[in-house]
Design a protein around this nucleic acid. Structure first.
Lengths: 96, 96
DNA sequence: TTATAATATTCCATTTTTGGAATATTGTCA
DNA sequence: TGACAATATTCCAAAAATGGAATATTATAA
């Protein structure tokens, strides 16, 4: 049961290691969204989105809030923006 | 062949989504190290370390430099420290 | 109650990742 | 050359992730 820090971090990275989930995170960076909005804007089947959201939630990266029929998801970790920006810069450099 | 940005990022996260590889990155944060040093300090078989290093290199996270029999590896991406620190903080909060 | 909209779950075949074991390659030095 | 040290590669079975399809759950409103 003793999951060390490296394993914990690895699990977070695992949750981030999928393009659909990254796209969802990017979309949530704009603020809280309900599942229906995510499904409308991103081009994936609703069950696929739903499963992706649950994986992100299990990893502790997003949180949810129910309101009637809707479930609203939002980011729970602040430092991703910085890291993403850094990656973007690196990708730009590579294209030279 | 068109790998979009999300897929590129996902591949970086995939490379980071393994405790052994994270441990290696942590060790390299101290500066350039040869494979033998990594094998001595971390407690994994040499082929396992070697494969992990190659995966990290393919992802563009580290680079290598040969010198005689030795191969020295070092970090290639600067922004990981910040992100790791952020994750550490989050883990601490969770333990409250 | 029943119909319906929003979301979650299950099932499943395919692909990918994992790490151990054995082996190969490469550079150096006597 | 031959031996050895450092590193990389291959092979493989087991485990995990992927995404499509069908279906289940839940809350609301009529």
């Amino acid at each position: 049961m003793k999951t060390n820090l490296y394993e914990k971090k690895a699990q977070i990275f695992k949750a981030l290691s999928n393009p659909v989930r990254l796209e969802i995170i990017d979309f949530l960076a704009d603020g809280e969204k309900c599942v229906c909005e995510i499904v409308e804007n991103l081009n994936y089947e609703q069950p696929h989105i739903s499963k992706s959201l649950i994986k992100l939630k299990e990893a502790g990266l997003i949180k949810d809030r129910k309101e009637g029929l809707n479930v609203y998801y939002s980011l729970k970790i602040c430092c991703m923006g910085e890291f993403f920006n850094c990656l973007n810069k690196i990708f730009k450099q590579e294209n030279n």
